[in-house]
Computed example of a mutant assay.
Amino acid sequence: MSSKVKDGTSCSDYKGGVCIDGICEPVGCDQVLGSKATVDACGLCKGDNSSCKFYTGQYTLQHRANEYYPVVMVPAGARSIRVQEMDISNSYLAVRSLKKGTYYLTGDWTVDWPGRFQFAGTTFNYQRSFNRPETLYAAGPTNETLLFEILLQGKNPGISWEYTLPHPERKHNYTWSIVRSDCSAPCAGGPSNALLPLGTPSWPLTLTEAELCLPQQRVHYSRVSTKAICLQDQQMQVNSSLCNPHSKPAVGSHMCNTQPCPAYKESTSLWGLSESSRPGTLRPIGLKSVSISWLQTLTQCFCVVCSMVTSNTGQIRYRQA
Rank of each mutant, 00 (worst) to 15 (best):
residue 10 S to V: 02
residue 260 P to F: 08
residue 14 Y to S: 00
residue 86 M to A: 03
residue 149 E to C: 02
residue 35 S to V: 13
residue 247 S to I: 04
residue 171 K to F: 03
residue 105 L to P: 01
residue 92 Y to D: 06
residue 95 V to R: 03
residue 19 C to P: 01
residue 267 S to N: 09
residue 148 F to R: 01
residue 156 N to R: 10
residue 282 L to D: 00
residue 50 S to L: 10
residue 104 Y to L: 05
residue 211 E to N: 06
residue 286 G to L: 15
residue 245 P to L: 10
residue 244 N to L: 12
residue 219 V to Y: 11
residue 144 E to T: 06
residue 195 L to C: 12
residue 262 P to A: 13
residue 290 V to F: 07
residue 21 D to M: 08
residue 285 I to F: 14
residue 115 G to W: 00
residue 154 G to T: 10
residue 188 A to K: 11
residue 61 L to Y: 01
residue 121 G to L: 07
residue 214 L to D: 07
residue 216 Q to M: 06
residue 179 V to G: 04
residue 137 Y to S: 00
residue 212 L to E: 13
residue 93 L to A: 08
residue 262 P to K: 12
residue 230 C to T: 08
residue 129 S to C: 04
residue 315 Q to A: 12
residue 139 A to D: 06
residue 122 T to M: 04
residue 298 L to R: 14
residue 297 T to H: 15
residue 224 V to C: 08
residue 78 A to M: 01
residue 147 L to A: 05
residue 32 V to G: 13
residue 194 A to P: 01
residue 95 V to L: 04
residue 255 M to F: 04
residue 51 S to N: 11
residue 82 R to S: 03
residue 194 A to E: 14
residue 280 G to I: 05
residue 248 K to T: 15
residue 42 C to L: 13
residue 70 P to S: 14
residue 308 M to K: 13
residue 99 K to E: 08
residue 181 S to K: 07
residue 176 W to P: 02
residue 264 Y to Q: 07
residue 135 T to W: 00
residue 93 L to Q: 04
residue 34 G to I: 02
residue 131 N to D: 13
residue 201 P to V: 11
residue 312 N to A: 14
residue 141 P to W: 09
residue 179 V to I: 08
residue 34 G to R: 07
residue 165 L to W: 10
residue 254 H to L: 05
residue 18 V to W: 11
residue 111 V to K: 04
residue 159 I to D: 00
residue 24 C to F: 08
residue 120 A to Y: 00
residue 15 K to P: 00
residue 200 T to W: 14
residue 111 V to F: 07
residue 13 D to A: 05
residue 213 C to I: 15
residue 320 Q to V: 04
residue 6 K to R: 15
residue 310 T to D: 14
residue 66 N to M: 06
residue 110 T to P: 00
